[in-house]
Design a protein around this nucleic acid. Structure first.
Lengths: 233, 233
DNA sequence: TTATGTTAGTGTAAAATTAACACGAATAAA
DNA sequence: TTTATTCGTGTTAATTTTACACTAACATAA
């Protein structure tokens, strides 16, 4: 079966930069899920999960599908990032890449468990291997987006478990933004938005004072957002 | 001549939201350049300037080319906005739209003069006609981007002439953000960044005190930006 | 049972930033 | 020369941000 057009057309792929975060680590860092390529070009090299867009699906759907098929990840935060269109970015021919950024917590979504995604592996952002195509550029762009976005939209919570402590939240921000925050000031500011719900639970198990568990109030945020409220860290 | 592929491919277009601004108007507003469609579908309707991506050009190049061919506009600020990929956004079949935002000053780039762009016309943003395809959505997205961006990156200057007065700059921001600023505070803040150069010239001609002309120091901004400085209004 | 090591949780004062506010100076036209 | 209009400027109060240190609670080891 083949398809014929009057004018030449580029192929269109979606590629996903999946940021993972594990709050349980001593020194948590951002991770990225990569897949080892089984085929030429770049056989054996690591690449972002992705694939070609089907005619019947939207771009968002294509990204969600690839996320599920190649990474075994479903129902997470995902947004379109940028479309990369250098003419020589794929040696096979003209291929555009509509890139997406996804955010997942590594406790909720176990590191490449089961599924199709056995070729998948998490890498620390600062220990990435050489990447196929222009995927390095895509990752860089994704990181800039994440750093920018996290400061004025409450997307950080997507990287945490449903219930988290203030310290965990702070560590997350410190990791992403590569800076430290004063504990009291951080808490004060976060508190002031009234977006965190005290779940009543406590994080126990470590040989120190237990920490209260909170949940992000997404509904309230949406309400406030419509009223012109803006989150800012 | 025809082109055959093993798998079906979407067609890929670029569409440009060109924001225009005329500081000479009494009550300036943002304008958008539209083109009256000569062909079905949406014949007779207004649409964003755009067209299909050629195999030999990058997406940015395609956008620049369409800007020139359809709008007669060259060498202006342009950046990629978003890629729209609803399966039914074009009745002719699957067409992706990689959208761009461009910013032009209407004194520098005369309203649809000469060129190919005779079908082109500027419309006030709040008096837009019905648009073809999903172009309304694209315009909405573009406006959100502009509003967001203008506050933390000095892109507003792209909408002004090379030399402008403080009042003109303030009116621009007030127009885009749909709010007012205190004259003295606005000036103080802008001044504090040291990004405006006093050209020595004066804006004369009106029956009131002449205003000093300034120029935006783009080079200095780039230097500061690298040092971690960030503009914010 | 007690001691120890470690993280959780909390308030205040100084500094910096933002917001509010009014009037004389300069210009072109009448 | 008068008039109408916009330009250019400084201070004070309010708010926000920053800096900073100790007690409380928990699990483990003694």
């Amino acid at each position: 079966m083949s398809y014929t057009y009057k004018h030449p057309r580029p192929a269109v792929a979606v590629d996903c930069v999946i940021f993972g975060y594990d709050h349980r680590l001593e020194e948590p860092d951002l991770q990225i899920l990569l897949i080892e390529r089984k085929l030429v070009p770049f056989k054996g090299k690591w690449a972002l999960p992705g694939g070609f867009v089907q005619m019947s699906e939207t771009l968002d759907e294509a990204a969600a599908r690839e996320l599920k098929e190649e990474a075994g990840i479903e129902k997470v935060y995902i947004e379109q990032l940028y479309t990369f269109g250098a003419t020589d970015r794929d040696p096979r021919g003209r291929v555009l890449s509509v890139s997406y950024v996804a955010l997942v917590n590594l406790e909720k979504h176990r590191p490449s468990a089961g599924t199709d995604a056995e070729a998948a592996e998490w890498f620390s952002l600062n220990k990435l291997p050489a990447l196929a195509f222009d995927h390095r550029t895509i990752v860089k762009t994704a990181l800039e987006r994440l750093r920018g976005k996290v400061r004025y939209q409450p997307v950080g919570f997507e990287l945490l478990p449903d219930e988290f402590t203030f310290s965990e939240l702070q560590s997350l921000y410190e990791t992403i933004l590569e800076r430290t925050f004063d504990k009291r000031n951080f808490r004060k500011k976060m508190d002031s938005y009234g977006l965190l719900i005290d779940t009543g639970g406590m994080r126990r198990g470590k040989p120190n004072r237990a920490a209260k568990l909170y949940r992000f109030d997404g509904k309230r945020y949406k309400t406030l957002e419509k009223r012109g409220f803006s989150f800012e860290l």
